[in-house]
């Protein structure tokens, strides 16, 4: 293949994307005194000590599990309520449907900072403060609309003759929905689940505000690596690296539908 300017440009961009990540991995494999002591482009004496700390220290792995827990909980809530709603929007016209659809969008767009205070007070009042459920419900703010928008985009692609045929064949709505329709759009559900997962996983502000100790997310633990002796850079880098794992593990499966998810199902 001929090397063209565009290939060089693409390569340069990919290097630009990878360099900060490489650097994080590089630092994560060095002990802190070595990081501060000498500058090196690659770990000369690499150590997994930072990672061992992450998996043995309860405050680290505990908060990692916290994050996973509320993210999965949010995924379950979002998909459960979004599936029927997306179906309704994709198939029926009903009173106020357009306004409702727009209102959903505004929730996806709303800055979480706006909801910070009221969330804090609401969850304190109903006794959910510092629980996984609180974060999961708060993240529903943007993830339910996101899931409805993406799923609606996928569902519109399924001809409604399929629904009609099923009803003629005597299927009830719930049986049709579960045994026929959901399998038909399982690709779309997979993509939606991926994005719901990712957007809950990457959020910090709400998760931090709604938790204290019991449900503290991993990213908050990361902001607390500053101790009396200064910041443990190696440990911080290692923590950063492990937050990349969930996304990196599943992205391969949805790589061809990334654009669809990112554009709220509108590509």
């Amino acid at each position: 293949m001929r090397i063209r300017t565009s290939h060089i440009g693409l390569a340069a961009y990919l290097i630009f994307l990878i360099l900060p990540l490489y650097w994080m991995i590089n630092l994560s494999l060095q002990p802190n005194h070595e990081i501060l002591g000498s500058f090196s482009l690659y770990p000369e004496r690499y150590t997994f000590q930072n990672y061992i700390t992450l998996v043995t220290d309860a405050s680290w792995y505990g908060s990692y599990l916290n994050s996973i827990t509320y993210v999965l909980l949010n995924m379950a809530i979002s998909l459960t309520v979004a599936l029927p709603a997306a179906y309704a929007f994709s198939r029926f016209s009903f009173l106020g449907d357009k306004h409702l659809f727009f209102w959903l969008l505004t929730n996806r767009m709303a800055p979480p900072a706006v909801f910070l205070l009221p969330f804090f007070q609401l969850y304190q009042n109903i006794g959910l403060y510092d629980t996984h459920l609180a974060v999961a419900l708060a993240h529903a703010l943007f993830n339910v609309p996101l899931a409805i928008w993406i799923l609606e985009g996928f569902m519109r692609g399924i001809p409604k003759e399929i629904d009609e045929t099923a009803y003629i064949d005597g299927y009830s709505f719930s049986r049709f929905f579960v045994t026929i329709f959901i399998p038909l759009i399982r690709g779309g559900i997979g993509v939606t689940a991926f994005f719901v997962f990712v957007f809950s996983w990457v959020e910090l502000l709400l998760a931090r505000t709604l938790t204290a100790t019991n449900a503290r997310p991993f990213s908050v633990t990361m902001t607390q690596t500053i101790s009396a002796t200064g910041i443990d850079w190696g440990l911080l880098a290692a923590a950063g690296v492990v937050t990349m794992i969930p996304g990196a593990v599943v992205i391969w499966f949805v790589r061809n539908n990334l654009a669809r998810g990112l554009s709220l199902g509108r590509v």
Binding site: L21, W201, V202, L204, M222, G240, I251
Partner: peptide, 8 residues
């Protein structure tokens, strides 16, 4: 990849 990393 950059899109999948927690914002903090």
């Amino acid at each position: 990849l950059p899109l999948l990393i927690p914002w903090n």
